[in-house]
């Protein structure tokens, strides 16, 4: 039906629910360019007041970490408990710190 040249690219959609919050990933859609992607994102993802700002970016432009390295990447954080405040003993008399 279509050759690769005619494929409509995939975009990732991010929406900020209201000022003061981060834009958050909500899903993806196909569109020829960024203007059409924004318009489609408005129709598909904000029909009930879900946000006041939309970002779109080409899915192909996202670099993702490899899930098979998830352990090597993220597990070392588990045994570094000294990075958390509760690791340190401070007497109650000192008060809130």
């Amino acid at each position: 039906m279509t050759d690769r040249h005619d494929l409509t690219p995939l975009w990732e959609v991010f929406i900020r629910p209201r000022n003061g919050l981060h834009h958050r990933h909500v899903g993806s859609l196909h569109a020829a360019d960024s203007a059409l992607a924004l318009q489609a994102a408005r129709d598909v993802y904000t029909r009930r007041g879900e946000g006041n700002s939309i970002w779109v970016c080409r899915s192909a432009d996202i670099a993702a970490s490899d899930p098979s390295f998830a352990e090597a990447n993220f597990e070392p954080a588990d045994d570094k408990i000294y990075r958390h405040p509760t690791f340190y003993d401070i007497p109650d008399e000192v008060g809130h710190m």
């Binding site: 039906m1 279509t2 494929l7 409509t8 995939l10 899903g27 993806s28 859609l29 196909h30 129709d43 598909v44 029909r47």
Partner: peptide, 30 residues
């Protein structure tokens, strides 16, 4: 109108979910 528009939207959310498994939108449409 709002309901029918919702159904179209639901189709699009679901196509996107299927695409994460490696099937293309073009293939599904075809």
């Amino acid at each position: 109108l709002a309901k029918v528009q919702d159904e179209g939207g639901h189709g699009l959310y679901l196509y996107s979910a299927a695409e994460t498994l490696g099937v293309s939108r073009e293939q599904m449409t075809e």
